[in-house]
Amino acid sequence: MTLPSSAPIDPLVLYGHAFDSRLLLGTARYPSPDVLEAAVQQARPAMLTASLRRQTAPAGTASQADHGFWPLLRRLGVPVLPNTAGCHSVQEVIATAQMARELFDTPWIKLELIGDDYTLQPDTLNLVQAADTLIRDGFWVLPYCTEDLVLCQRLVDVGCQAVMPWAAPIGTGRGPVNPYALRMLRERLDVPMIVDAGLGLPSHACQVMEWGFDGVLLNTAVALAQDPVAMASAFAKATQAGRAAHRAGAMAAQEHAQPSTPVLGTPFWHQS
């Protein structure tokens, strides 16, 4: 892929498309559309996630929020990443993704196939088949998955050019609950990886970026903060800081203390 001359220095590249932000932001659970809009303007995310639900009211009687979201998305001008949230079968995923493609006019799809309603854990046994079918149908698939190495490898094998392992169950804000597996996954797979779900603090985002992940996708941690707009800004900065630290290369941890100030010439020093 050739990046245009105006391309960012350190872009996030997904399916050949460069983004100058490594933060993907969800649009749900904000106190109001105005707060969502302000949070997006602070975070300047690479993409915004959105979803599909049934129309339950005739035209002209839908709620203000229903009417307001579509024009808000258009106004923000951020690429939209539709999801297949709530799907429990491959058939539901395929139909939902195809509806999303027509409605949002985009090949991007965040593949969510839920296998357990309590933990919202992905259905790891059917996720690969769903991804394979979508990719053959021309979608640019970003699969929400666990940190299981073999699952992620199989997703890559069927054509996923990026994967999105969870840090913790959706909406928990617990941060990475299995750092060993996440770091091993990062070490073993050489595709863009976005940590999706379970992040609660900017430090969580910074940490996974320090580990070498390529981006983060979050929603609840911003939307349910006391000040979502300020938290959006904090997450954006933390994501950038973690990425910069990864590129800078961290020192190796040491077992013993080593003075950072030179010992030679220490005043009042004497041989004991």
């Binding site: 969800g26 649009t27 749900a28 659970r29 904000y30 969502l36 996630t49 959105a50 979803s51 599909l52 639900r53 049934r54 129309q55 839908a62 229903d66 979201f69 579509w70 998305l73 539709p82 999801n83 949230a85 139909a95 509806m99 409605l103 949002f104 959706i170 909406g171 779900a197 929603n219 609840t220």
Partner: peptide
């Protein structure tokens, strides 16, 4: 028949 609309999502 399912008729769907865009909504907020994560």
């Amino acid at each position: 028949l399912e008729i769907i609309r865009p909504v907020t999502g994560g």
